[in-house]
């Protein structure tokens, strides 16, 4: 236990970085994911085609491969961002594909009559999506999107592989010095578990809060 207390500073810094990636990545993934879904269900063929390709691409390439690609390839073409920013952007783009699929399944639960009623009072396609369809779809996918958020929190550890010092990387560094892998990695693991638990519990609270009266 001592090794954790003796090295609390780098470990807490790592945990905070993990939290930061999870928070910004999660919010970003939800925003991008909803936009991708909106494009996916739009009547404009080009938009829905692009959204389809987006989802297929990011679901079928491993996150680690994307991280390596972005971190080492983007500077080659002149796009230089801080390492942490690059990692967050990649995580947003990647997890957004999963959010988009979850939200699309939610849209399928909204009855066609809701969209028809929206159009019948003169709302445009975007208005009916924004005011009627998406609010109901999102309510029905709180749980699956929460699961994507938990996966996102776990996936932040891959950022360690490209040099971001988050919780896993911090634990590894501490272990290199202290050589006490069990304490260090169990400690880090408990950190991830607590984070997943917090997301899972708040998902349940949000789901009950936004439930539609039926």
């Amino acid at each position: 236990m001592n090794v954790l207390l003796d090295n609390w500073r780098p470990l807490v810094d790592g945990l905070l970085t993990t939290l930061w990636i999870t928070l910004v990545g999660g919010v970003g993934a939800i925003v991008v994911g909803v936009l991708v879904t909106a494009a996916r269900v739009s009547p404009v063929k080009v938009l829905s085609g692009l959204a389809f390709c987006y989802v297929q691409f990011f679901m079928n390439v491993p996150l680690l491969a994307l991280l390596v690609l972005f971190v080492f390839a983007l500077p080659e073409v002149g796009l230089i961002m801080p390492l942490l920013t690059t990692a967050i952007v990649v995580i947003i783009l990647y997890e957004a594909a999963y959010v988009a699929e979850a939200v699309r399944s939610g849209i399928n639960t909204v009855s066609l009559g809701q969209a028809e009623a929206a159009r019948a009072i003169g709302l445009t396609f975007l208005q009916s999506l924004r005011l009627v369809v998406l609010p109901q779809a999102l309510r029905s996918v709180v749980q699956p999107v929460g699961n994507v958020m938990i996966a996102l929190a776990m996936n932040t550890s891959l950022a360690a592989a490209v040099g971001v010092v988050e919780l896993t990387a911090a634990a590894q560094k501490v272990n290199l010095v202290s050589a006490q892998p069990i304490q260090v990695f169990v400690g880090a693991g408990i950190g991830y578990m607590a984070l997943a638990l917090a997301i899972g519990l708040s998902t349940g609270v949000v789901e009950r809060k936004v439930a539609i009266v039926r």
Partner: peptide, 12 residues
């Protein structure tokens, strides 16, 4: 205006 068989009020 249109009134539907299944009402279609916005549930949320």
């Amino acid at each position: 205006g249109m009134v539907f068989q299944s009402f279609n009020l916005f549930a949320h």
